[in-house]
Structures are given as structure tokens and as C-alpha cells.
Design a protein around this nucleic acid. Structure first.
Lengths: 171, 171
DNA sequence: AAAAACTATTTAACATGTTAAGTTGATCAG
DNA sequence: CTGATCAACTTAACATGTTAAATAGTTTTT
């Protein structure tokens, strides 16, 4: 229905159509990720947290103190987003900030007791969900998937980004 | 420093720490996807398109005419986002809309000649990038990855979302 | 030391993600 | 046929993604 093979109305198109949409790798990754997050979002929401806010709190559990830029890398958030979210988390007194006297530009972020308490409340639920996913999908397969994703990322980072405007490194 | 391995110092922590952040599946999927998109974004940007705008145009290549809600499912965009983007694409005359007389609520979207032309300009570059990714990562491995992601998604959709507020289907 | 160059972070501006509410047209009960 | 209900979109409101510019503090150059 309405799915004509080629020839976009009027002009003779010689070019082959692009690959099927469903074979798009970005789409596949997006769909998978959304399917995963759909499991976690409700419990986060119940605790008044967004996915990104949770990423930040979670990162601070393992490292306790981090500079803003470190935290950005750890959570894979861009610094402008992080900056805004930190402001909110600080206002909610879930995190606190201070600057070392040696360099006042830097900000060192850490959890407050309230932040730790919130994590303690949410973590068990998250872990349970993760365990269920692992059980269903299979621990081995899950590990294999992680490995394949890691390889994909590594391989892609090695490709210089080709385009008209900017080169890969900097110019 | 400041990276205490839990429980060995300071306060007696009874709860086990959460899994390492790097083992988080959502993070892994996010990182992979970003690595992929980093390849595509520049060329899209050169043509004045965002990733989502491209998804829409691309979807309309294979189906030519789609209702808004169909398009939302096809592109995996939420309807509010789609609604805004369609407004912009329409203003730029890359797509056009009409409503069937039988049901004026519906909107049927299709590409304009300019939209088709834009796709013809971008598609070869996208295909080349995709080919390079496939070559580097391996066609077989890529297919395997697609399959694993598909299975993950399927498995996850089968899990009822457990949380406090809303039940899964409807109540 | 003062100007220039650099660094860490924040602001700004615009696009999208996300949930809730509003609009308009279609359908159905009475 | 009229009011209730439903369906397809759109708007609204707020949070984040993304790129560029601004701020403020630090280091280097002269």
C-alpha cells in the first residue's frame, strides 16, 4: 500500500533505495536501549529522579568525589547538561560542591547524606530489575553483547570522521 | 584518591555496592550509539538536518505516504516531537501534508520534490559511511549484533514493567 | 607584572525527549 | 439529532541534547 519500489513521482530515479530502515544500526541501538530503560524509568520516577540524575548519583557512589569534567566523562553527559542538573541536585541537597583552594575554577562534587540515602532506596530495585533482565536474556549472552558493543565502539572511534566542514582532530 | 573500596574505611557500609557503572547496559548501548552517530552527524549537519529530521525523511523514502501516527512508530519518535519537526520540515518545504476527506483528524505526510532531492544528496554519503562501518566491524558480526539486539528487545518487551505507580498495560 | 593564551565551568539558544492537557473531528448511545 | 465518548493530533511545560559563546581563574609570554 503506497509502497512503490522507486521512481519518486516524475523523475527517473536510477539510484538504488537506501537500506531498509529496520536495518539501521542507530535505530536498532535506540530501540534496544529504550526497551531497557522502559524497565528502569518507572522506579526512578517514583523517587523523583530522571535517568540522567540517576547516572550522576550512581557515578558518585563508586568514586565519592569527582570534578565536574570527570563526572561528565563518567556519566557520558555533556557539560552543559551536567551543569544544569548539578544545579538542581544541589538545590535538592542530594549533592554538594566545593572548590579546591589550589584552583578555584574547578568544582568537586560529592553526595550528601540525603543523596546516599536516596541511592540506598533505589539501588535494590534497580539491581532486581537488572537481575531479571540477566536471567531472561542469559548472563552469557549479555556478556557477549557487552563485548560486541565494546568492540563496535572501539572500531568506530578509530574511524576518522569524514565530512566537509570539520576534520577529525581539530584544525 | 578519594576512591575508597567500600566498607574498608570510615563508615560501616552494610549494603553491597551496585554493579560497576561500566557494566550498565543502558550506558553501553548509549555509548555505542553515540559512537555510530558521531560518524553520521557531520554530514547531516552539512545539509542542515538533524538526526531526527533525517529519520523522518528516510522513513518517507520507503513508504512515500504515511499518517502521522504511523510515522511516529516508524521513526521511533514521540508524537509531540514529531509534530514539531513536521511543522518545521513543512515550512522548509521538504515534506507536505494533506488530510483524507474521510477523516479530517488524520494527516498524511509525504516528501516534496525538494525533500527527495535532499535525500538523494545525503544518501550516498550515509551509505558510504555505513559501508565503512560494516567493512571494519565485519558484516557477519554486524548481523549477529543486530540479531542480539533484536532478541534483547523482544525479551524485554515481554517483561511486565514493575513499579509502584502504574501497572503495565492499563488499569 | 600586565597582556595574551589557555582551562574549567557556566550561560545561552535552539532542537528534541517526555508527560499531561487541549483541540478538533469522528462515533456511539439514547 | 444531540450529548457523551473516543481518536488523532497538537500545544504546553519542563528536562536534556547539542553547539557556540561567555565567565572566571590560571598559566605563559614578553
Amino acid at each position: 500500500m503506497g509502497n512503490k519500489p522507486s521512481g519518486t513521482a516524475g523523475k527517473t530515479s536510477r539510484k538504488p533505495p537506501m537500506r531498509e530502515f529496520s536495518r539501521s544500526l542507530p535505530m536498532a541501538l535506540l530501540r534496544s536501549r529504550e526497551a531497557v530503560m522502559r524497565q528502569f524509568r518507572p522506579s526512578l520516577r517514583d523517587h523523583g529522579l530522571t535517568e540522567q540524575q540517576w547516572r550522576i548519583l550512581r557515578a558518585l557512589t563508586s568514586i565519592e568525589q569527582m570534578e565536574v569534567s570527570e563526572l561528565a566523562r563518567a556519566t557520558y553527559l555533556l557539560e552543559p547538561s551536567l551543569s544544569r542538573i548539578l544545579r538542581d541536585l544541589e538545590a535538592r541537597q542530594l549533592i554538594q560542591r566545593r572548590s579546591p583552594e589550589s584552583d578555584l575554577r574547578r568544582g568537586i562534587v560529592s553526595l550528601t547524606p540525603a543523596g546516599s540515602a536516596l541511592i540506598d532506596a533505589v539501588a535494590p530495585i534497580s539491581e532486581a530489575i537488572y537481575a531479571e533482565i540477566t536471567r531472561r536474556y542469559g548472563a552469557k549472552k549479555l556478556e557477549a553483547l557487552h563485548e560486541m558493543l565494546r568492540e563496535l565502539e572501539t572500531e568506530l572511534l578509530a574511524i576518522p570522521v569524514k565530512n566537509g566542514a570539520d576534520a577529525d582532530g581539530d584544525e
